[in-house]
Amino acid sequence: MVAGDAARAVPAGTIRYWAAAKAAAGVAEEPYHAATLADALAAARQRHADRGEFARVLGSSSFLVDGAPVGGRDHESVQLVAGGTVEVLPPFAGG
Rank of each mutant, 00 (worst) to 15 (best):
A49M: 13
F63E: 04
V10F: 06
V78N: 01
T36W: 04
G83Y: 02
R16K: 07
D39R: 04
H75S: 12
F63Q: 06
L58Y: 04
D74I: 03
M1A: 14
D50A: 10
V65W: 01
K22F: 00
V70F: 09
G71A: 07
E87W: 13
G95N: 09
A40S: 14
A49H: 13
G13K: 05
H75P: 01
Q79R: 12
L64G: 09
A28S: 11
H48C: 04
H75V: 14
H33K: 14
A82R: 03
D66A: 14
R47Q: 10
R8A: 14
Q46S: 11
A34K: 15
R8Q: 10
A44D: 08
A7C: 00
A21Y: 07
A20M: 09
D66G: 11
Q79L: 10
E87P: 05
A20L: 07
S62A: 14
A43I: 15
A3N: 09
T85D: 06
L80S: 05
A25V: 10
A43H: 01
E30W: 07
A40W: 09
A35G: 14
R45F: 02
V65A: 13
H33W: 06
P11S: 05
Y17I: 04
F54I: 15
Q46M: 04
P11F: 14
E76K: 06
A21E: 08
G67C: 03
I15M: 03
R73H: 00
P69G: 08
A93I: 02
E87T: 10
P69Y: 13
A68P: 00
A7D: 06
A34L: 12
S62D: 12
R73W: 02
A21S: 10
A6P: 00
A55M: 07
A34C: 08
T14N: 02
T36G: 07
D50E: 10
P69N: 08
V78D: 01
A38P: 00
V86G: 05
E29V: 12
A82E: 15
